[in-house]
Design a protein around this nucleic acid. Structure first.
Lengths: 243, 243
DNA sequence: GCCGTCCCTTGACCAGAATCAACATCACTT
DNA sequence: AAGTGATGTTGATTCTGGTCAAGGGACGGC
């Protein structure tokens, strides 16, 4: 995303779902124009979040889900002993906050990893609208189903795969999601720290750092701080066990 | 469950949602009597599954979700290289098959761990009915949300916890789910093998076996083959980091 | 009741990632 | 531009759990 584009995206709360560049990735897929307009009415677009600001916190009452408009968020759960577990990274067009649906309070927190903005979708309004609009209901079932399959793939990764396989899989996931948003699949900036990557993948910072170094030495990726370039996509897929 | 009860449960496909012992755990929560009857009309109750029979297989077209009526199922995904990853165990009253919602084909397989029966809920009928019945829509959003939070807790477990913590957490999970169904929280029979437990928890059979032995030596649990008794619930919770 | 297979347990050894530690570098503040 | 705290890299060492191997026991079929 260019700077100008980013700025427009963060600062213009007037863009509606119909015009949104992300429309095709977000909730409105498969909705008709007038349906999109109805959805648009319940969506709240607030001021952007600065890096480190929270969208919601664990134990907050649940009242909405959020579509990332720009930037990125990390969701994480805090255990009784204070340790944190990152449960997901959310990029533009992706929906977060669904962890609160079952118990009506969030069981994780969400924090902006950079200057970011969201569309807030009040859940009771979404439910009402879904009742009247089968295609929206269908779409939201689909989005929740996707979250389930994503988490289950993650379980496989954490249960079976080595440090290299995990890191490779994360890079490929980000690459694919960028590609889907018409951004470069081979060159991108990580908005999360090594520690956050490690936490998410069940590894320590040191291990993540070593894997990055090793992959760079093998000329599979190029790394400069948080800037990553995938130099050999095939080899990377080989490492990640994604044929 | 007594033998007679089990037999009635497996073999009597005429029990309806209104009469079902599991009603309070399953889909019908918060539905009115006439709503339950409508739900009942779309539910299909087939013959029981023998141990080892599949409810659905990976890549099968998705057309229904299933509520476990009796027995238990394991869901697992098979990777390209043939290795399997168990993604969940499902006990009576729990819903499985939601992994197919997003892509319209199942991305995991489900197999009966013992003689078991299910209620099949065709998904397009469920969607139709949900559109007309906000409380059912709400309930199903809730069930999917619960699957999401369950998977995310599992991520934390696999990302951070030691072998002992993982096994303790599984025993406590089964205990709590049994308790919820008015069965003993302290004494139960595992329907899954050590290998399946290990696979689910990201451990080898040997490690699971060793953990069982250690917990038994400390008199925290009693184990005889697949029969488990929790002798010291507090200590077990201490080990699982569940305060 | 016997046999074969699968399941489980236990031991010895090994490897991959965690931990501990030191240092380099980045980014933000002043 | 310098200083400071957070972030990242690299090396040495430790340790948990994986791997390999062997044997015992349960269960289902005949």
């Amino acid at each position: 995303m260019s700077c100008a584009e980013a700025k427009r995206c963060h600062t213009n709360p007037l863009v509606n779902c119909g015009d949104c560049r992300l429309g095709a990735l977000c909730l409105p897929i498969a909705l008709k124009t007038d349906e999109i307009n109805q959805l648009d009415e319940i969506v709240k677009r607030g001021r952007p979040f600065n890096k480190g600001e929270h969208l919601y916190r664990q134990a907050d009452p649940f009242h909405a889900v959020y579509a990332v408009r720009s930037g990125s968020f990390k969701a994480y759960a805090t255990a009784d002993d204070g340790t944190e577990q990152v449960t997901g990274f959310y990029l533009p067009g992706e929906i977060l906050g669904m962890d609160g649906i079952s118990s009506l309070s969030h069981c994780s927190s969400a924090v902006a990893l950079e200057t970011s903005s969201v569309c807030e979708i009040p859940f009771n309004r979404l439910e009402e609208l879904s009742s009247q609009m089968p295609s929206l209901q269908h779409r939201f079932f689909q989005i929740m189903g996707k979250e389930i399959t994503k988490d289950q793939q993650m379980l496989t990764l954490l249960g079976k795969n080595s440090a290299e396989e995990r890191v490779a899989a994360l890079l490929l996931s980000i690459s694919a999601r960028n590609n889907h948003r018409n951004l470069s699949a081979t060159r991108f900036r990580l908005s999360m720290s090594r520690a956050e990557i490690g936490n998410y993948m069940g590894l320590t910072v040191e291990t993540v750092s070593r894997v990055f170094s090793r992959l760079q030495k093998q000329e599979i990726i190029g790394v400069e701080n948080r800037e990553v370039e995938i130099l050999d996509m095939e080899k990377l897929k080989g490492i990640a066990n994604v044929a």
